[in-house]
């Protein structure tokens, strides 16, 4: 517990520290910090303008897809294939959904913790899988949407490959930790 509390304290400290240092540094460098702050906030309106339509489009498609229940079918079809590779089936939902929806895969991680405990092999593996990757679909639509990029070229493939490599690596690392 002690370690966890310490980490929480430190991570709560980081943002206030960054804010104070930035403003104070600006003041020392004779920046008119108040006016400059206002200018920055004003700019955020322009930048965020394109964001809402992109979010609606993405969330609409992702939610229809995930809420239809088709993921359960995909898990059923894939699990015999996966078990050939000696990959624990229980973490498959996390690996598959993580690039699409962070909250959905976090829900699966919750289930794993409840069933097997956070310090079990599956609990650790799920934690690392969730931690070492990001929501590729979301990041791509967010970042490209805000500057109006329509042709995303090979970015989705490259992002998903990075996720896949992370998933495989986390299985190997956790297996190695548990074996030792």
């Amino acid at each position: 517990m002690q370690g966890g509390i310490k980490i929480n304290f430190i991570s709560n400290l980081i943002i206030p520290l960054i804010v104070v240092i930035t403003i104070f540094y600006g003041y020392r460098k004779k920046v008119e910090v108040y006016d400059s702050f206002i200018v920055g906030v004003k700019k955020s309106f322009g930048m965020i303008e394109n964001l809402f339509p992109t979010l609606v489009a993405m969330i609409f498609a992702i939610n229809v897809f995930t809420n239809s229940g088709i993921l359960d079918l995909i898990f059923k079809v894939l699990s015999p294939v996966i078990s050939v590779f000696k990959i624990p089936i229980e973490v498959l939902p996390i690996a598959l959904i993580r690039p699409i929806s962070s909250s959905a895969s976090l829900a699966y991680l919750n289930n794993l913790f409840e069933k097997f405990g956070p310090d079990s092999f599956l609990g650790l593996l799920g934690s690392v899988m969730q931690g070492c990757t990001d929501t590729t679909f979301y990041v791509i639509s967010l970042y490209f949407g805000c500057v109006g990029i329509k042709k995303i070229r090979y970015s989705l493939f490259a992002g998903l490959m990075a996720d896949l490599i992370g998933m495989v690596a986390s299985i190997l690392v956790i297996k190695a930790i548990f074996a030792s």
Binding site: S11, E114, P118, D119, S127, C132, T133, A162, G166
Partner: peptide, 30 residues
């Protein structure tokens, strides 16, 4: 984007607090 989606995280705070919530003895083990 690849740099971003590959998740360059050193301290995954959400997961650590979730592990803590479920009574993990070593929440930062991961």
């Amino acid at each position: 984007l690849v740099l971003n989606t590959s998740g360059v995280t050193i301290v995954p705070t959400t997961i650590i607090s979730l592990r803590l919530m479920y009574g993990s003895l070593e929440p930062t083990k991961i």
